[in-house]
Design a binder for these strands. Structure first.
Lengths: 241, 241
DNA sequence: ATCATACGGTCATCCTACAACTTCGCAAGA
DNA sequence: TCTTGCGAAGTTGTAGGATGACCGTATGAT
């Protein structure tokens, strides 16, 4: 079979490339909601791939509720509000302002997470949180990042609210990925110690079942974590003093 | 072509059915993270569909970071923490407890959204919010639901934080869909009026640029909205007294 | 004018074939 | 014995064509 000379020599799989392209066209407003996409055959020709590849790409977008395909009619782009999935563009996070906003969202979620956890956590929950905390102290170079995530997730789990856990895990992971790739230099050790110290303060508040203190400690911690990677949370008015 | 007698007679598309099935198997822990899935051919046989359908299903799961496929090796399920997308199972929301938890998450997000919006909103933002508010007063039977969403989204937009907007839109939409299908009876009109009254209170606080009051009004509103659809937010300790 | 029908376009599914890649085992050589 | 190289087998990735199901519209009969 003759190898179709694809446009760009990338390592990315074809369906993903097509999906990204379409996604950007929709996101960028090139195709307005309600409009019809070209037919699968046309897209296949346009991208120089088989119709199978186009279908796989569309399958992804459809799963996100970004487009809707009606048999015998065509595929239509849907309003951005009725997506069935949340996805964060990793590229966009290279923009400092977006990273700042994501940190703000994280601050909101985690602050309340700590507040709820303080009121609800069982002794088992506390044990799990303590375990994550301990693992952060005996740190290898970058194992500390994992331990940090573990700590935050353990708290989120202690809220007893699965959705809170999911959302926090997701946001934290996005931030981690983007930080991880941005700076290959491993974190300075004294900063890690500051981090652990803040964790201890949070844990103490949780163990004391003091929601107010736990939330406050968490808020400060997120602020600190942000500034440690060069992000300043401006005018964060959580629980406006 | 002979019609393969499929196992279940549903209106859902085949790839979606397969994806759901696999998703549930993974979510349920039947296949642990790191383990390999059966080959595409085996899955095709198992579900009684073509390999193409299986590939589309896998394409969806792969886009979510739920599984990873390596050419020449196989497909592996990934740890739930490193998903690249958040998705909410609409089926699960039929369970009252899950709905309760989702409302709690919404309460957290929206309360802070109102707080931030009060401090940051421009006059343009206020106009948009007011417009949504007015549209809720001249209500048709179920247009009021749309107007309600519009109102909340307008506030989220006024925070100036795109992620907050995205997350709130998403959560609200999930709740709306599930409520909408649960009870075909249109909302009682006096309840709609209560709803609008609460909106007015929020708007006033926003217009006065009073973050504290706005957050408080929003928290009460979400609580009210929840109870109006039969969901009680238990022990919600946002800004603990 | 109205309604039933035929037709063309589009997505949905299936099938087969081949390419690209990985793994593993075996055999030849050092 | 150990290493190296190579090929076989298995798996995912892509291509392309065929057919079924479904929709919208135009056509034609009543």
């Amino acid at each position: 079979m003759k190898q179709r000379s694809s446009i760009i020599g990338s390592v990315e799989a074809l369906p993903h490339r097509v999906a990204s392209h379409l996604s950007r066209e929709i996101e960028g407003g090139d195709i307005i909601p309600g409009a019809r996409l070209p037919t699968e055959s046309q897209l296949a020709d346009k991208f120089g791939v088989s119709r199978n590849v186009v279908r796989e790409a569309i399958a992804q977008l459809r799963a996100d509720g970004m487009i809707e395909a009606r048999q015998g009619v065509g595929a239509f782009v849907m309003a951005p509000e009725q997506r069935t999935a949340i996805r964060i563009d990793r590229e966009a996070l290279k923009d400092q302002r977006n990273m700042e906003q994501l940190f703000e969202l994280r601050s909101i979620l985690e602050t309340e997470s700590a507040t709820l956890a303080a009121a609800r956590c069982t002794s088992d929950d506390l044990d799990a949180i303590k375990a994550a905390l301990d693992r952060g102290e005996e740190r290898w170079e970058d194992g500390s990042i994992e331990a940090d995530l573990l700590f935050h997730r353990a708290i989120a789990r202690a809220t007893g609210n699965g959705y809170i856990y999911t959302f926090i895990s997701f946001v934290c992971e996005q931030i981690r990925q983007s930080i991880y790739y941005a700076r290959l230099t491993n974190p300075l050790h004294d900063l890690v110690e500051v981090n652990v110290a803040e964790h201890v303060r949070i844990y103490d508040a949780l163990a004391a079942h003091d929601p107010q203190a736990a939330g406050e400690a968490m808020r400060r911690h997120i602020e600190g974590a942000a500034s440690r990677v060069g992000v300043e949370l401006t005018a964060n008015i959580n629980r406006g003093k």
